[in-house]
Design a protein around this nucleic acid. Structure first.
Length: 260
DNA sequence: ATGTCCGAACGTTTCGGA
C-alpha cells in the first residue's frame, strides 16, 4: 500500500501535474490539501480515468479544502472542524484493513508569531491544541498526514537561526507540534527513513528567483503513524523534482509504502 | 527577503491568503 500526501495549491489549476505524478508514482491513495474548489466543481474525471474511483472531498470556496483519492475502497469516518469556523481542513477515512487515514491542512498562521498582534497565529495554536485533545482520545491504528505548516527540527529548515521568529519554525509552534505527536505516540515516518540531521524539505517559496539554487526550503508536510502502523512502513520518499514541473505547487509530494 | 502565486470580484486590475 502506497500512500501519498501533497499540498497542491489548487487542484484545478494543477490537474496536469497531479496526473503526471499519479502516472509516474501510482500511489494507491493520494491525500491532497489546498484543493481550493467547492465540491460540485471538483475535477473527478481525471482521477477516475487513472483508476482512482473511491474519492472523498471536503472543499470550500477559494481557500483550503482537502481530498482523498483512492484506488482501493475506503469508508469515510468524519470531517472535523477543530477551529469550529466552517473551514474545510480535515477528512478521515478507514482503509480496507481498518487503519484510519487522517488528512489535515493545518492553518498557516499569518506572518506575525504573536497571538495578540495576529489572531491567525492564535488560531493555529488553538487548532493544534484541539487536534492534540482529539489525538489523545484516538484509539486504534492510524495514519496522520498532510500540510502541518510547521517544520519542527533544525534540519527541517534551510537556516534554523534565521527562522526562529518566522511562523512555521517558532519554538512555541514546535512545542505545540511535539505535544500533538506525544498525544498518540505518533511516529514521524519522514524522519524514520530520512534521519536527522539529513536535509529534508517539502516546500520552497514561490518568491525565490531560483528555488533550487537558493534551496531555502522547509519541511512543512508530514506523515505520522501509530507505532504498530509505523512498523509496517517499508519506504518513504520526497519527490523534489515535482517543484520544477510546469505550473508547480510550492509543496512537493511525500510518499510512504506500507506492507499491508 | 516584501518577492510569487491562486481564486474571486460587475473585473481587462485589485485584493486577501498563503
Amino acid at each position: 500500500m502506497k500512500i501519498a500526501s501533497w499540498n497542491i495549491n489548487s487542484v484545478r489549476f494543477r490537474i496536469g501535474i497531479v496526473e503526471q505524478f499519479l502516472r509516474e508514482q501510482a500511489p494507491d491513495i493520494l491525500c491532497l490539501q489546498e484543493t481550493k474548489v467547492i465540491d460540485p466543481d471538483f475535477p473527478h474525471a481525471p482521477f477516475e480515468a487513472l483508476g482512482y474511483r473511491h474519492n472523498f472531498i471536503n472543499g470550500q470556496r477559494m481557500h483550503h479544502g482537502v481530498a482523498i483519492l483512492s484506488k482501493v475502497p475506503l469508508v469515510e469516518d468524519d470531517r472535523l472542524d477543530w477551529q469550529a469556523n466552517g473551514e474545510a481542513r480535515h477528512l478521515g477515512v478507514r482503509l480496507p484493513n481498518g487503519v484510519r487515514l487522517e488528512n489535515v491542512y493545518v492553518p498557516a498562521g499569518g506572518d506575525i508569531p504573536d497571538r495578540e498582534l495576529n489572531p491567525k497565529f492564535g488560531q493555529k495554536l488553538d487548532f493544534i491544541e484541539r487536534m492534540t485533545r482529539w489525538s489523545e482520545s484516538l484509539r486504534g491504528p492510524a495514519i496522520l498526514t498532510g500540510d502541518f505548516n510547521i517544520a519542527p527540527l533544525e534540519c527541517d529548515v534551510w537556516n534554523h537561526k534565521a527562522l526562529l521568529d518566522v511562523v512555521s519554525h517558532t519554538p512555541v509552534e514546535v512545542a505545540a507540534l511535539g505535544g500533538l505527536q506525544a498525544a498518540h505516540g505518533w511516529v514521524d515516518l519522514g524522519r524514520s527513513f530520512i534521519a536527522a540531521p539529513e536535509r529534508y524539505y517539502t516546500w520552497w517559496s514561490y518568491r525565490a528567483k531560483d528555488w533550487e539554487a537558493s534551496d531555502r526550503g522547509r519541511r512543512l508536510d508530514h506523515m505520522w503513524a501509530s507505532p504498530e502502523v509505523a512498523r509496517a512502513a517499508t519506504a518513504h520518499r520526497v519527490h523534489e523534482p515535482c517543484r520544477s514541473w510546469i505550473k508547480p505547487s510550492d509543496h512537493v509530494p511525500i510518499v510512504t509504502e506500507f506492507d499491508f
